[in-house]
């Protein structure tokens, strides 16, 4: 924009109109720029959307009746619970383990940081599917799990592997360990984004190292950790469907079992999809509020929540 531009439009107006407007500013009307292509585009999108929705409701092969029937069926709801449980354990476990891995990777100890590097390398390299099957079959490789002093016969705890690593155990192990590798990198990225001066200030105040990590650096790192972390959790919700290879009855496996029996493939897939959509939506809402919480202090004033905005709009029109 050139410095003289604010004055320019006035010069192009007819003199009579300008004189009138100067007398009565409220007589000015705003004429938005015309954009016919926007209208064409909008109309096109509207037609396509309408077509899709129309077909969804009129094509009988979607079988909405079947969808409704199975949507809240007990077996489906129980499977949904299992999916949520797996997600929760793998997400929490993954992020806790990931936090330690991230600290290890940034440690000045060469051994610790190489171990963390190696872990992340291995668990990002092996496909989750392969890992799940390996864990499930670990009983074949090691028949007994024992905790003791390596190289001696001393054991504090001993149990057959198959007792501990059942389907659920294998699923939890595989998902958590896999998730930890990705979480570690996300957390490390977040920590690196925190100004070095924060560590120094905390150190110069004599704040202990562990407290520095958990109370000074991590809360600030969370701001950049949260968006990719929720990405991970959301893809984990759907990622748990890989566990169907273990025949563990989470949502996707159960759906498959049902449609194998009833042959209603499409409506059953719809049931699963709708549930995944609902979970993702809820997670999106949680993400919004969690991010808002950790934005405290980082921005001068927090923007209003959608609810507050709605309330103020209702209040404003009254």
């Amino acid at each position: 924009m050139t410095p003289s531009s604010p004055a320019a439009p006035a010069d192009t107006e007819p003199t009579g109109q300008r004189a009138e407007a100067q007398q009565r500013p409220e007589a000015l009307t705003v004429v938005p720029a015309r954009n016919p292509w926007r209208w064409v585009g909008t109309a096109l999108v509207a037609v396509v959307l309408f077509g899709i929705v129309w077909s969804l409701f009129t094509n009988p092969r979607w079988q909405w009746g079947v969808v409704a029937e199975w949507f809240t069926a007990e077996s489906v709801v129980r499977a949904l619970g299992n999916t949520l449980l797996l997600t929760a354990i793998a997400a929490v476990g993954g992020f806790v383990l990931g936090f330690f891995l991230a600290l290890m990777r940034m440690s000045s100890s060469g051994l610790l940081s190489s171990v963390a590097w190696f872990y992340i390398w291995i668990f990002r390299s092996v496909p989750l599917l392969v890992q799940l099957l390996l864990w499930y079959n670990v009983g074949y490789l090691y028949e007994v799990i024992s905790v003791g002093i390596p190289g001696t016969d001393v054991a504090f705890f001993q149990a057959p592997t198959t007792d501990i690593i059942n389907k659920f155990g294998a699923a939890v192990l595989g998902l958590t360990l896999h998730q930890a590798a990705y979480s570690a990198e996300i957390i490390r990225g977040g920590i690196l984004a925190v100004d070095q001066g924060q560590q120094e200030a905390a150190a110069s105040l004599g704040i202990p190292r562990w407290r520095r990590s958990t109370h000074i650096v991590l809360p600030q790192a969370l701001r950049s950790i949260l968006p990719p972390a929720f990405n991970e959790i959301i893809s984990l919700v759907k990622g748990t469907s890989v566990v169907y290879v273990l025949a563990y009855n989470e949502l996707f496996y159960t759906i498959q079992v049902i449609y194998a029996r009833t042959n209603e493939v499409i409506p059953m897939l719809l049931v699963a999809t709708l549930w995944y959509v609902i979970i993702t939506t809820v997670l999106n809402i949680i993400q919004y509020y969690v991010e808002r919480h950790f934005a405290r202090g980082a921005v001068r004033t927090l923007p209003p929540t959608p609810l507050q905005r709605l309330r103020s709009r209702i209040g404003g029109t009254r």
């Binding site: 100004d195 001066g197 120094e200 200030a201 110069s204 600030q220 405290r296 202090g297 980082a298």
Partner: peptide
């Protein structure tokens, strides 16, 4: 030994 920094380094959160 206290230290005061050029960039303040207050804990923003």
């Amino acid at each position: 030994v206290g230290m005061v920094f050029q960039q303040f380094n207050l804990f923003p959160h």
